[in-house]
Amino acid sequence: MPALSARFDPDSTAGNRDVLDIRTRLLISLVVTSVTLYLSSNATLAAMSALTFIYLLQTRRYVVIVVAYLLMLLMTLLSLGIIYGSSRLFMMLLPGEGMSRMMSGVLDNFHTPFLRSIPSMNVLLAIGLNFSVQGFVGTMKSVRLPRFLFLPLLVFCRFVPEFVDVVRQLRDAVRMRGFSVGFGSAILHPFQTIRLTVIPLIVRTLRMADNLSIAAEMKRVGYAKKPTQLRTLRFRGLDFAVLAVTVLVSAALCFWEARIPKPKRMARKPVRAEMRASGTLAPTEIDHADTHGRDARQQVRPHGRDARPAHPENEGASK
């Protein structure tokens, strides 16, 4: 009968399941989310979403991916509902032309911020679906984080799985005392709920911190300059290739984005410049046009015999 230690195989640890190094995935996440923030047209954002979706499919966790997308759709609809409702509320509470003009376009271009969230979600899911505490701790060791960052992150990783247990114990303790804690009691008795849940949680957390710090001191965690590693992480050819492709694709999308004309901005400026040059805009109207360009374009008409048309397109029509 083999000993328990005989079952241990370094290559089968959770950190080695993934075909890519976790640092590669983190770098991809950083590049994609930064580039996505720059992109603003539908075409480039859709292309980035599609490419990151292909990258996500590599994890082969299709059910989780479908559930994540459905959840995102639900949250998007919820957010839209709340935003639309809030805008109506603001218009009721603060009546006025400025507010109604601002809020009437609350759902214009609403898809762009949500389209921008899709690539971020894809790269994040790709990290999350391959995440393991052991792999994360190994990464932190390999990048040689300083002690003051390594220890809190280590404690963070160890605490999150414990938290479920802590909450269960707290719920049992509250029930034994004859109280019930839920969404209803949080609304009806917020201070009592906080007192019953948060204070015991803080006390338990502080005690846990004491125990963990004693354990870390006993094990001398964070004292060794170069900690011993069971399996050293290193970049492979595939990691370099994937990173290179990510950078190239991101650069191409940025270039594409820069080449796409911005129709609204292009249309407004020549109109105002033309009106100023032709003298058809009175001084007060010029001020008005500077602040509310769209209204001024609609209201100001050329007057006088020599007045030129306000827009180049109208010039041809008058001839």
Partner: peptide
């Protein structure tokens, strides 16, 4: 060997960050 950040303080910071995020 003395550090500015002792182990207990680092543990408390890590736990409270986790608690804050999770809650």
């Amino acid at each position: 060997r003395r550090f500015y950040w002792d182990t207990e303080s680092l543990g408390v910071v890590g736990l409270f960050t986790a608690l804050s995020k999770v809650v």
